[in-house]
Every structure is written in C-alpha cells, then in structure tokens.
Design a protein around this nucleic acid. Structure first.
Lengths: 151, 151
DNA sequence: GGAATATCGTTCGTATACGAACGAGGATCA
DNA sequence: TGATCCTCGTTCGTATACGAACGATATTCC
C-alpha cells in the first residue's frame, strides 16, 4: 500500500493490502460500463439496457403487474415506475388495472412494442456476443456461472 | 422463446433463443446490485462505492488532477466532478490549482480524509470478502481474471 | 366483522452515469 | 507569432438506482 498523499502519520502497519483496482466491485463496475457502451453502440441510443430488459421480459412471458415486472427485471418499485412511464410515453407498452386486485397495474407490450422488440432481438444477441468476445467459449459459461452465484 | 403477450403474429421462426435471464449484461447488473447492497451494509450509507473509489485511489497514490482521477476511478469528467464536490462538502478532500497547468485542478485527501480512509480500509476489505463469499477460493481468482478481460 | 399486517403504486430526495456543448488554457507546427 | 487542435473543468439534460414515506387495497387472524 502506498503512502497517503497528505501528512498524517502512516504507522508502519500499512497492511500491504488494499488495491482498489483489484477489488471485485471496482472491476465489475468497469466491466458493466463496457457492456453498456457496447449495448448503446449496437442497440442505438434510443433504448437503454433497463428499458430493453422490460421489453424482453414482457415479450418472453407476457404482461405482469408493475412491481412484479420490476422484480423480474431487477428494479425496485421506484425505478420500474420511471422505466414503464418512459416506455408508455413511446407507446411501446400499455397498462390496465388488474380486475382481480385493485392495487395492481398490469403492464404489457403494445402491438407496436411487440414488433419493435422482435426487430431488436437479433441485435440484443449481438450485444451479448460482442461483450463476451474477449473470452474463449468455455470461459463464457464459466463467467456466467460464477456471476450467477454472486446474485 | 415464449410467445409475446399481445396479438401480432409470431411467425414460427421464434429462433428459440433469447432468454433475458441468461444474458451477461443482465446477470452482471444483478451481481453488481448485490455487491452495492453489501457495500452499503458494511461501509454505512454515508459513503457510496464511487466516493470510496476516489478516497482509496487518493490514499494509495496521492493527489491528481480531477479528470485524471476520474479516469483512474472509471468515471467521466461530469461524474467525477459531482463526486469530488460532495467529498469537498464533507471536507474529506481538498483542491488547489495546478501551478504547472492553468486548466488543472489538483484533488487530494485532506488530513481528515486520510484518517477517515484509513479507518475504513478494513471494512472495504470485508466488502470484497463478503461479496466473494459464495465462491470457492480458486473461483474468486477466476472470476476476477475473466471480468478483467471484459473491460 | 374488524384490527393488524402486508403489498401495490406513487412521490421525493440524493447519487451515479454519460452525451453534448461551452469557454479557458496548452501544445503543435507552419 | 498565430492558427489549429487538444485537454481541462463546468453545466445541462436524461436515465437508472434506491431509501423513505405515503395512501389505497388485500390478506390474515382473532
């Protein structure tokens, strides 16, 4: 461990330990940044990764309540609301009250949203391919398996 | 691939391919969220991961210009400015003009920032340990090596 | 039935993250 | 020297991310 920049005594402890650039969190943040950058290049800047997650999720398994949709796409209630609102504004999704539960708001793809999502699917697959391109084939499965364990 | 929720014909293509929950980007976002959650539990909610990155970087190698500091901590010029401003408000860092380059603003730890950072170092090490706890020892090195290749 | 409890969606405030544009200062080179 | 180009820090706008609090609706349990 190097010395701090300012005076303040460094006891000879120094631990010889912490290097920011070797911490998982820091490295993972950089890897995620690179991924988002690739996403933007390929998908175009008019759709964000979280917005895409919502579209893909709805396309795969149909509508669900807003909060559940958030859980399925790894967003809390406050975040999913903003994402859904922006997709609503673009008419890619539509909402309706849940007849079985007065608290719930059902979110589903609009017909235009279905078309839009289907058109983007090949690009989304490319995003994953390009992101993983630096790795050998067997390494890709390893990485994904390890990351899953950290969730 | 399951059917879209709304009408709109699904040709029998369907590609049988894209599952959101299997894409690196999505899994990595979840892993990062879990890590930040661990970070907040251990470090306390009064310091964010990016703020910590700045403190740790300055502690390790001393002051540098604001933009360079941003590069070293994986933040662009707009982001690092906000982070430095908030650390300035808490008097954990201090700034001064670079005598050799009138454009540059040198950022360094304040004496209080040095103490504060040193006190948090053990906790920061714990954050990494807890984040990687689900993995076997050899898997940890593997994960880090693979993530580094994705940067 | 009714009270305690839980979930749903909403809003507010704060903090990344980053593209884009801007003016000021530096470096390069004719 | 002066024109060109680059870098620096700043500001604006938009989009996650999430804790906290709120009212409305459901569920549970007595």
């Amino acid at each position: 461990m190097a010395r701090p920049s300012t005076a303040a005594e460094t006891p000879e402890s120094a631990e010889e330990g912490y290097d920011l650039t070797e911490q998982v969190g820091f490295i993972m943040r950089q890897a995620a940044q690179r991924h988002v950058s690739i996403f933007n290049e390929i998908m175009g800047s008019d759709l964000t990764p979280t917005q895409w997650a919502v579209l893909a999720r709805l396309y795969q398994d149909g509508g669900s309540s807003q909060n559940l949709l958030g859980r399925q796409t790894a967003m809390d209630a406050a975040t999913i609301k903003g994402v859904v609102d922006r997709l609503l504004k673009r008419k890619l999704v539509q909402t309706k009250p849940d007849p079985e539960d007065g608290r719930r708001l059902i979110v589903e793809l609009s017909p235009a949203g279905v078309d839009y999502t289907r058109e983007l699917l090949p690009k989304a697959e490319t995003v994953t391919k390009v992101t993983l391109a630096p790795l050998a084939t067997n390494q890709r499965a390893t990485l994904i398996a390890l990351l899953k364990q950290l969730r």
